[in-house]
């Protein structure tokens, strides 16, 4: 069975932020909430690298393990989702998450923490697929329509990949092999090589 995964190819990521705005566009995510971010290391220096990060839909998801109200569930193809009706917005999952994925939209002028919000792999939430309620709370449900996350589908250089992990790694591996022989390239060889 497929397991849904993201992969960001740092050799291709140019930090254009299309993934970020595609997400905003698809889900009408409000200002201040970022389900996806691009992180750049060594900005403006040789060795600069960028990768796009969101919820990684962990197989053994720490958020799910720590949630005091057990609002997380995982679909058969490995997408980690949650029920906002149950969520108490405590932020414990933010402690647990290695990627800083959970976001807490402001709900009032006083900045009280709202319900947790995060990347849904474009799979909505537990409400009826494609319903107005689901859309308001979680955004679009592309998976139910047979479509993959828009961030990856719109990536300017096809650096960000999303879909069945096996196929994603095949696409990536093919690229990496093509790059082979380029000593300056940091990719497969450096990741898996002896050194």
């Amino acid at each position: 069975m497929a397991r849904m995964k993201f992969l960001c190819d740092a050799e291709r990521c140019i930090e254009c932020n299309a993934c970020v705005t595609a997400c905003k566009n698809e889900h009408e995510v409000p200002w201040g909430v970022n389900r996806r971010r691009v992180v750049t290391l060594k900005d403006g220096e040789p060795g600069e690298k960028s990768i796009s990060v969101a919820c990684m839909h962990c197989t053994d998801a720490p958020c799910s393990a720590v949630c005091p109200v057990d609002c997380f569930y995982t679909t058969a193809d490995g997408i980690v989702l949650h029920d906002k009706n149950l969520c108490i917005g405590c932020g414990y999952c933010f402690y647990a998450c290695p990627f800083g994925a959970p976001q807490y939209p402001q709900q009032s002028a006083f900045g009280v923490r709202g319900k947790m919000d995060k990347c849904t792999f474009c799979a909505g939430g537990p409400d009826a697929d494609g319903s107005a309620e689901e859309r308001t709370k979680y955004g679009a449900n592309r998976i139910a329509e047979g479509k993959l996350p828009l961030c990856a589908e719109m990536c300017s250089t096809k650096a960000l990949l999303a879909g069945d992990g096996d196929t994603v790694s095949e696409i990536y591996r093919e690229r990496v092999l093509r790059r082979g022989g380029r000593p300056q390239t940091w990719g497969w060889d450096k990741a898996y090589g002896a050194s």
Partner: peptide
């Protein structure tokens, strides 16, 4: 993880 206590997602 704990036992999910929310609504059942039709997507499942």
């Amino acid at each position: 993880p704990g036992v999910y206590k929310g609504k059942t997602d039709p997507l499942l």
